[in-house]
């Protein structure tokens, strides 16, 4: 059966060429990603932030909770490059410690809401029977008044989680969970819409005519094609999670007041906005730049994952 057929204009003309070596898809993705200047800069900055919050405490070993009341409200100096706050705590050390919490809350909460949102969205879009139920459930969550809900959740679970995982880990799990389960709805809606449209495409019909079962249909044909909206949701989700965490800390529902996060630092500094404006700048800048870099990474990744854009 291997002899060439008669009507073989393409093969006949170029039969001498050897098959191209199978290239790893991730190599192609990386090659395309590298051509996106913004994404590359974003990735660089994000890696820098990650290194700073992970390795930073080893290099800058001032305890962020150490109160040096005589050095309070000092401006930038060699001893305190970012200055100190009203209690004389070193701002750089607090920025590093706060970044660790903020970035991990952002990443974890984003991951949680993404998994939830994609799961609900794909199931609702793919299985018609689940659509009504899941989408009304989504509407229900969208309609819930967020702040009272958060208050109730935190009051109900704070003490239990604290005693189970320790005060900081407990609050961390609580915050991530609370942000995750209150922010998946947009993702679910966008993903559902895309899945509904994809489901009618002929390649899905073709896969069905082959006999591909639903679970593999979703992982092989649906999910890779809804990557773009998921990617966009993910990058916006990190920003959203960092900001929500700040708001929660500000309301006293988040981490304890002596536990630094970028949001906490920002809100603490607003009291001194007129006397020491630079103190607002550091956490503000850190939040904005992190969010911006993640958005650029998402943008580049979305382009790199799309074979239609790749290579041009």
């Amino acid at each position: 059966m291997t002899e060439p057929v008669i009507h073989n204009p393409v093969g006949a003309a170029q039969a001498a060429r050897l098959p191209e070596k199978a290239r790893s898809q991730w190599r192609d993705v990386w090659d395309q990603f590298r051509t996106h200047k913004g994404a590359l800069t974003g990735l660089g900055f994000f890696v820098f932030i990650l290194l700073a919050v992970i390795v930073g405490p080893l290099l800058w070993d001032i305890d962020p909770k150490y109160i040096d009341i005589r050095a309070r409200n000092s401006g930038p100096s060699l001893a305190h490059p970012f200055g100190t706050d009203q209690l004389g705590r070193d701002t750089l050390a607090r920025m590093i410690a706060g970044g660790r919490t903020s970035v991990s809350v952002g990443l974890m909460a984003m991951a949680l809401s993404l998994v939830l949102g994609t799961f609900i969205g794909v199931l609702a879009g793919y299985f018609r029977r689940l659509d009504g139920l899941f989408m009304r459930f989504t509407d229900l969550f969208l309609a819930l008044p967020l702040l009272p809900l958060l208050l109730v959740i935190i009051l109900l679970f704070r003490d239990a989680l604290r005693s189970a995982f320790g005060p900081e880990a407990g609050i961390f799990i609580l915050i991530v969970g609370v942000i995750g389960i209150t922010s998946w709805m947009q993702t679910a809606r966008i993903v559902r819409g895309d899945v509904l449209a994809l489901k009618e495409r002929e390649f899905v019909l073709a896969a069905r005519s082959i006999g591909t079962p639903s679970r593999r249909m979703i992982t092989r044909h649906i999910l890779p094609n809804v990557m773009s909206p998921i990617m966009v949701s993910a990058t916006l989700g990190i920003a959203n999670a960092i900001i929500t965490e700040s708001a929660l800390s500000f309301l006293g529902l988040g981490f304890p007041s002596d536990f630094p996060t970028w949001g906490r630092l920002l809100f603490d500094s607003t009291d001194y906005l007129q006397q020491y404006p630079e103190r607002v700048m550091w956490p503000g800048l850190a939040i904005s730049l992190t969010v911006l870099s993640v958005n650029y990474i998402g943008d580049g990744l979305r382009d790199a994952l799309d074979p239609r854009i790749r290579g041009r």
Binding site: E202, L205, A207, I210, T212, P224
Partner: peptide, 29 residues
């Protein structure tokens, strides 16, 4: 029983290589 579709643009998954597309039935059956 198999099918050849009308729109060759829409009937191939844009995120799969040709080898994976042709190999999918083999993988399944």
């Amino acid at each position: 029983m198999q099918m050849v579709f009308q729109d060759p643009q829409a009937s191939l998954n844009p995120r799969m290589t040709v080898a994976r597309i042709i190999g999918e039935p083999l993988l399944e059956h």
